[in-house]
């Protein structure tokens, strides 16, 4: 996790965010078919993602991206780097 005091943002991974959090994707660290699938489903750098809710046992987690809902396991969300605003 990195803080950037200049523009009040920090970079982290999607999996560490709480429900209700909004963030912007800056990078995908997945490889191969997993990466292609993420890209195809709209998880691309620049896209805005909102955390909706985690499944009862904590995994997977539901996200909203590009106006629709998507579920990802935490292990997969960990591969998505995001930028969040810090107040």
């Amino acid at each position: 996790m990195e803080f950037n005091s200049a523009d009040h943002t920090r970079t982290t991974t999607l999996e560490s965010l709480d429900p209700g959090c909004r963030s912007r994707i800056i990078g995908i660290r997945a490889f191969g078919p997993l990466r292609k699938r993420m890209l195809a489903m709209g998880m691309v750098p620049g896209a805005e993602v909102e955390v909706i809710w985690a499944a009862p046992l904590g995994d997977p987690v539901e996200y909203r991206v590009k106006g629709y809902c998507l579920s990802l396991r935490r292990a997969e969300a960990r591969l998505i780097e995001v930028l969040v605003e810090v107040r």
């Binding site: 078919p33 997993l34 699938r37 489903m41 809902c69 998507l70 579920s71 396991r73 292990a75």
Partner: peptide, 10 residues
């Protein structure tokens, strides 16, 4: 085999 994970549209 390949794992596609749980990337699923709700």
């Amino acid at each position: 085999g390949e794992r596609f994970g749980m990337i699923m549209e709700m």
